[in-house]
Design a protein around this nucleic acid. Structure first.
Lengths: 349, 349
DNA sequence: ACGGGCTGGGAGAGCGCTCTCCGAGCGTGC
DNA sequence: GCACGCTCGGAGAGCGCTCTCCCAGCCCGT
């Protein structure tokens, strides 16, 4: 009781003393385990408010082996760090990132869990992230892994860290994942372009090191072949708007009579639209453009993009749910949840 | 040495035994404190790799009172949660969010620290965030507080949690913050529009509950008044592209002869551009548009936006640095770092 | 009246680490 | 040769919590 308590944070012990019970009882009241006499419960609660007690989560974690944090790892391709560019700038600028975060929060909101963000865009960063996770700083990991050769998923698996992937890995791992049927998405785009009577079409794909990009392209190609179109100009982009502009310009130069373009994401489609406008091509009259994602970029410019929707928020929320499930019941088999793309018809195609 | 170790994680104790030293010595080697005989250091390091030891951070936190995590709190205005909308959807869709994250990572990269994301978009979420921080789950907080009446900064101050704010609070608190001279930014926009010979101008402001929005508007107004323009049509927007479209449409209806518009962020400017295109107004010939932020939205459409640059990444990185500084030297006086806006001249004005 | 289950609280042993204190060993100065 | 300081490793006390035991008391059936 000696005042001048020197700022020592109040502990369970203090509360117990004030309430006149044992530490164990206070703990029971706080965690709601077992029956505790209502009168004592009251006393404890009063003591808690009186002392302003807040449990120390490090101490709690030490014994429960739970932290209340989930890692959200953005495991990008090794980005060259240009001096004027900020860390992960391109990744974080992509609407995709915000949608994932939003979905994760949707899945986490009801619980008392928080996402800790990690950027694994280099071997060094990946090691750091792995170490961090190994140290038990988070209960599990959600990994948005863009590149095919990313070793992180396998490392997490080996380390025994509960993990769920956004996007299937190139070679199956016994890790749960959530993904879109990208091939089918590509097919949808092709079918739509074909139904609109476009026969001189081209594709702006994403980086072919990314499985989703390859799948979208091959789905598109397959369906186009089904429609009898076998020649398919193709430029590889990097999913940025700037690259969409560059790709469209190059396509236009080489194939001036194009009447349809499929871009593997909305950002690149938006870039294509801008270049087309500069070239005075009317969309969709002269040339139809179809995007992918249905992100905010789809309705940012004019005309609004017709696009293949990827329900990123739902997928991220599902990824979170799956991870929570694994945490709740360890040893559960890995599952893959596949989402179906849908066509969102707007004005550009 | 009895095998069948039942998966118990290896601890310091184990390493010490293997290396033939005491726990303390292993700890010293790991944390690099004091001189330890090189031969012993080697032995310890070998033992560490041999056993695959990874320190448990909960145990470490318990005694060091450091967690290695920094909270990044997005304390938005109380968002109505519509069923089809995802948590924080609008906030996370704004390029601003990604830029902040990028800047924070830039500031954190060299250290072994990670940001944990928190969304405080309701009283309940705010309480949760506060509790989380009080429990010592993070060493400090970086708060992007959008709304003027947000009680969170004051609560954090009262709770004694090291905090740095992005954006000055409406009433000064003894908390460090990083902000832009928004008023000056508004002035820059006005001066540029005036220099371009525009006299029938209007403003699309941000939500007036947000200090930055108010400051930008009043700076713009002041400078316009200096140029002899006192009548200034004004529509309040909410910083979204959709609202920019709505605002521009409304402005156009009421003031068809406008020849200049200042939008308080690029997203709204982009919306304005789209509406202007639909109305066949040429930008900048018929009407000049100037945005604010210099986000990726500025160059997404055509024409590229002339805009007042807010170096969000640098500001976020600085915010991180300031927080780290407060953590390194507690009891240090609060500082305010003010960044200067600059005009980025492109095509729209 | 008595044994057996059941309810509800206390004692205390850790969880895995850090860090202060000690003391052994050794070089140094006079 | 001896006291002194210095370097470097070990012992052990916690950090604040959870959770398993254990035990006291009580209600029940017979």
């Amino acid at each position: 009781m000696s005042s001048e308590a020197l700022k020592r944070a109040t502990t369970l012990e203090d509360v117990a003393r004030v309430a006149g019970v044992s530490r164990a009882t206070v703990s029971r009241v706080i965690n709601g385990v077992r029956n505790v006499d209502p009168a004592i419960q009251d006393a404890v609660r009063q003591a808690i408010t009186r002392t302003g007690y807040v449990p120390n989560s490090a101490a709690r974690s030490l014994v429960t082996r739970r932290t209340g944090a989930l890692a959200l790892v953005i495991s990008g391709s090794d980005a060259p760090e240009t001096p004027d560019h900020h860390v992960g700038g391109e990744i974080f600028a992509d609407p995709f990132f915000g949608r994932v975060v939003s979905g994760v929060f949707t899945g986490l909101r009801p619980l008392d869990l928080h996402p800790v963000l990690m950027l694994a865009d280099s071997a060094e960063a990946r090691d750091k992230a792995l170490t961090y996770l190994r140290q038990g700083n988070a209960d599990g990991a959600m990994v948005v892994s863009t590149h095919s050769r990313d070793p992180l998923p396998a490392q997490l698996l080996a380390a025994g860290i509960p993990t769920v992937l956004f996007g299937r890995p190139p070679t199956p791992l016994s890790l749960s994942c959530v993904d879109l049927d990208n091939r089918e998405g590509g097919r949808i785009a092709a079918d739509h372009l074909h139904a609109r009577g476009r026969h001189r079409v081209a594709a702006v794909s994403g980086p072919l090191g990314v499985r989703a990009a390859r799948d979208r392209l091959s789905g598109f190609r397959e369906a186009m072949a089904d429609h009898g179109i076998h020649q398919l100009p193709h430029v590889e982009g990097d999913f940025t708007r700037e690259d969409g502009e560059r790709a469209m310009a190059s396509l236009l130069r080489r194939y001036p009579d194009l009447d349809g373009v499929f871009a593997a994401n909305d950002l690149m489609a938006q870039g294509a639209l801008a270049v087309l406008a500069e070239h005075r091509r009317r969309v969709p009259e002269d040339i139809a453009v179809i995007g992918f994602d249905d992100s905010s970029a789809a309705t940012a410019g004019r005309p609004h993009l017709t696009t293949v929707r990827q329900p990123v928020e739902e997928m991220a929320a599902e990824m979170t749910r799956v991870l929570l499930d694994h945490l709740a019941r360890p040893g559960r088999a890995a599952t893959t949840v596949l989402f179906e793309p849908t066509l969102i018809e707007r004005q550009s195609a």
